[in-house]
């Protein structure tokens, strides 16, 4: 049942909360159930790439949306790829995309290359990448938010340098 603005106002005045189900924006990730890996689902022109070990949980999705929202980036501009689709990483362009690698263990699997003296590294196809704690770790250990905040700020700077 939908209520009018007037009805919401009256209920609010009486101190009666109105509960409604939340409809979360879904993060576009690969379909884990698909037998055939289809890379066409990825938009390789998106400016932001997030690489995860596994598909994200609802709580991790929400945290990722908040993290990018805090630097005014919508998830529509972010491609999230988990390791089962790692071959798709080679199709992203170092001129257009920067990557956030979620988890230090994952970064070791990706064979990242050092990049000059900056704290970032590079994927095999030269896409610049920042490494941050995984979202699961961040949910379990909020004290590590500082590391994530530094990584996301540096990622934003990297992205800005591509736009120059």
């Amino acid at each position: 049942m939908s209520l009018s603005a007037q009805q919401y106002f009256v209920l609010d005045q009486m101190g009666i909360p109105v509960w409604v189900p939340r409809a979360d924006e879904a993060v576009t990730t690969a379909d884990m159930s698909s037998e055939t890996i289809d890379f066409s689902q990825f938009d390789f022109a998106k400016p932001w790439l997030v690489i995860t070990e596994n598909q994200l949980s609802v709580a991790e999705n929400r945290l990722l949306r908040a993290i990018f929202g805090s630097i005014n980036v919508q998830l529509n501009d972010v491609t999230v790829i988990d390791m089962q689709f790692s071959k798709a990483l080679q199709d992203f362009s170092a001129d257009k995309t920067v990557a956030l690698v979620l988890g230090e263990e994952l970064s070791q699997k990706l064979n990242l290359k050092p990049y000059n003296s900056l704290s970032c590294q590079q994927l095999e196809n030269d896409v610049l990448a920042m490494i941050s704690p995984s979202l699961r770790i961040l949910l379990e250990q909020p004290q590590r938010k500082e590391e994530m905040w530094q990584a996301i700020q540096q990622l934003r700077n990297l992205r800005a340098s591509l736009s120059d």
């Binding site: 919401y8 609010d12 909360p17 109105v18 509960w19 409604v20 189900p21 939340r22 929400r62």
Partner: peptide, 9 residues
């Protein structure tokens, strides 16, 4: 609030 919606406000 995020579970139940902003109309709780």
């Amino acid at each position: 609030l995020s579970q139940l919606g902003q109309n709780l406000l």
